[in-house]
Simulated scan of single mutants.
Amino acid sequence: MRKLIVIAGATAVGKTALCTELAAYFDTEVISADSRQFYKEMSIGTAKPTLEEMTFVSENNTPKTIKHHFIDSHSIQNPLSAGQFEKEALALIDNLFKTRNKKNDILILTGGSGLFIQAICDGFDEIPPISTAFREKLNQELEQKGLQSLVAELQEKDPEYAAEADLNNPQRVIRALEIIRSTGSNYSEFRKLNKKNREKSKQEREEKLGFETIKIILDRPREELYQRINQRVLTMIKNGLVEEVKGLQQYAHFSPLKTVGYQEIFELLDKQNEEKINLETAISNIQQNTRRFAKRQLTWFRKDTAYTWFDVSKPNYKKEIIAFIENLIN
């Protein structure tokens, strides 16, 4: 059966470089499941792969540019939900397998957005119908009291989900709270129940979709990962992050921009902000918030026992991953 190789992991762990090399080795293409790299307007702050990073150079110096899908595919003015991504990405995967027409073919899915990867591999949780009144009320509270008020409620009522959720994303926070308020039960409990149902139907889903998934997590020692994150943020600033965000100020209220790296610069640029911060503080805030985000990403992935973990700080990790994949596809 055809295989979808999932390469996941925290931000800055080294997914892009590995996927480019794997795609060259297996003669395949890469599908991005990074929920911010979809957007044309967001490049520097999302660490979007450059043409150079998407090009593999062989030992005899022959370059090969690897096709990456869902990079610059959408606009922030038309945000892509995880549900929409599931439909679009599955249609793309089906088309790629058909047009490539290779026996035992593989494709690579990569990113750090656990929800978007789950959408492809497992589908979505079944949640009971909820009155739109709950969402309308929460959106009013978001406008009147701000996101932190809703985050505090989520942390109090469902600390388990709050520990792994992207708390900078108002859509995720509101989704969890509308379930909590309407049902009286924790969102995390619904997810546990649906996980059992997904495990039962996994084989049926794979047969329906026509491919199996092989899940791989890239990991590094925490201090090494944090150093890479800190350096990446400095590189973003050097490459023009502040200028990129300046050009997006009129869209600051759009949901794709309510994310680490952009919110901190919006705060820096906000002339009406009473607690005015300088660039040094903004950089420090981005680094700290990105480290926290990486921690939540790893918490999410650890709950999925289907992943096989590889320490990419080891010298032979690429050979180990290639051997692992070849063993499963042959």
Rank of each mutant, 00 (worst) to 15 (best):
L4E: 15
A12G: 02
E21R: 07
L22P: 01
V30E: 07
R36V: 12
K40M: 06
S43G: 14
I44W: 00
K48F: 00
E53R: 13
V57Q: 00
I71L: 09
L80W: 11
L80H: 12
E86W: 12
N95E: 12
K102F: 00
N104C: 11
N104H: 06
D105T: 11
I108F: 02
G114E: 03
P129L: 00
T132Y: 07
R135Q: 09
L138D: 00
Q144G: 14
K145F: 14
Q148A: 15
A162P: 01
N168R: 13
N168V: 08
R181N: 09
S182E: 05
S182K: 01
S185V: 15
Y187D: 08
K195Q: 15
K202M: 11
Q203D: 13
K208G: 04
G210N: 08
L218F: 04
R222E: 14
E223W: 12
E224W: 14
R228G: 10
R232D: 03
V233R: 01
L234F: 12
M236Q: 15
V245Y: 02
K246C: 11
G247N: 04
V260Y: 11
Y262S: 13
L268T: 04
L269N: 02
N289S: 05
R291I: 13
A294R: 14
K295G: 14
L298P: 07
K303N: 13
D304N: 11
W309S: 15
I322H: 06
